[in-house]
Design a binder for these strands. Structure first.
Lengths: 229, 229
DNA sequence: AATTGTGAAATTGTTCACAGCA
DNA sequence: TGCTGTGAACAATTTCACAATT
């Protein structure tokens, strides 16, 4: 065996939250680049993303990044560095399962394609939907999922089926060798540890909103105007 | 025996993450209730939500909840307790701004209504879309937003417009007195502190997935099957 | 016997503060 | 001078371990 394995880059230990912040830096850097700014400082970046300069520096340094002391970070360079870390230097082949409202919205969602996620197939089990054309794609029978994963080299599956059907779809994805799933069904999927799962849980966000409306926004203790005795 | 001031319930200090977990408990409890189970223990709940029993107990006890030692938590009781905390004992009047793919998907999204979020209005600025019928709603001119917020007592606005237009819509919401916004546009909105904002950031989730595909899933060091040199 | 509720310990994440560099 | 990179201080969160309770 090899020594304490390193990852591709100088990636140390990167927490989920710092990866999420990386996404935000990426977005900010894209905007800066578009605006023609060539370097950016940590206070500057922090301001744009409502973070602290220290955090920006910690995050960026945590994967051995290089800014220039006294000057800041080179925008384009840093952007492409982050792109690489986030796997944005690839494109990914995506299949959507479920051609209902969410599924159909996704195939038309520009942001998806912009980010390098190319939707190659959309599946459904409803005979009424199979055969429909959606943005240049034809809805196909979900029975063909495994075959398509192989033949079209699908790497990511988006699950946009009703809650009851989601686990079964997920199981089939796993059997087909899929390693990343984005789930829109409001259930907890059970998957092997080597499959990465993200669940887009709108209910959770909504509940957080309603919680805040009831209990007052912001950190505990913040005034609401109302006095809850 | 006077104590330092309490909130409505025994709500102590509740972090964002524990509120999100509350949503999960709620969902698990709904399932348990439907299955006819009348009590549930913390190890049981933890298993279903992939958490630790200790965390479940900490969360639940943090707002002075009551299980029964030796027995567990009463499912129905706990569920309605959480419902109250999350503001799920109300319904909320929601307006959607933006009748594009996301906006239209939302008005048809059953989960939304199930959770007590009633979409009362949908707005757009595109003359081609104004007047269209969507699930019993008519797309109206966004110029009428402020008026509708008042006359229809809208409490939550969902922003589903392109990135460029999002901040302006948000500003108008604030002026109309809205205190909760769910944002689907891929931008950072700037809002007063007393307005609760949640941004549903799909790019972030996608980037997390692609990061995981590139760098291996799970906590750092987890084996992938593939050996990244 | 089983399970909650909870201080205390461990861990994780964030901010501070300053040395080192352009 | 201004800013990065980073160890050390601090804060938040999670887990542990156990007394209390049914």
């Amino acid at each position: 065996m090899r020594r304490p394995a390193r990852r591709s880059q100088a990636a140390g230990r990167v927490s989920e939250s710092s990866i999420k912040r990386l996404s935000r830096y990426y977005r900010a850097l894209s905007a800066l680049e578009a605006a023609g700014q060539s370097t950016v400082s940590s206070p500057d970046l922090a301001l744009r993303e409502r973070l602290t300069p220290a955090q920006v520096r910690k995050d960026l340094s945590s994967f051995g990044s290089f800014g220039t002391r006294g000057l800041g970070y080179p925008v384009t360079e840093l952007k492409s560095r982050i792109a690489k870390i986030l796997g944005k230097d690839h494109t990914w082949n995506v299949a959507v399962v479920g051609a209902g409202h969410i599924g159909s919205a996704l195939v038309s969602y520009r942001e998806f394609r912009n980010q390098g996620f190319l939707i190659r197939e959309i599946f459904d089990s409803d005979p009424e939907r199979i055969g429909l054309a959606l943005r240049g794609l034809t809805v196909r029978d979900v029975a063909g999922l495994e075959a398509a994963v192989k033949s079209r080299r699908i790497e990511i599956v988006v699950i946009a089926v009703p809650a009851e059907a989601a686990q079964e779809v997920a199981d089939r994805c796993v059997r087909a060798g899929i390693k990343a799933i984005l789930n829109f069904a409001p259930v907890n999927l059970t998957l092997p540890d080597d499959v990465c799962l993200r669940t887009e849980n709108m209910s959770m966000e909504l509940e957080y909103l309603s919680y805040s409306l009831v209990n007052g926004p912001g950190p505990p203790g913040a005034p609401t105007g109302e006095d809850l005795t």
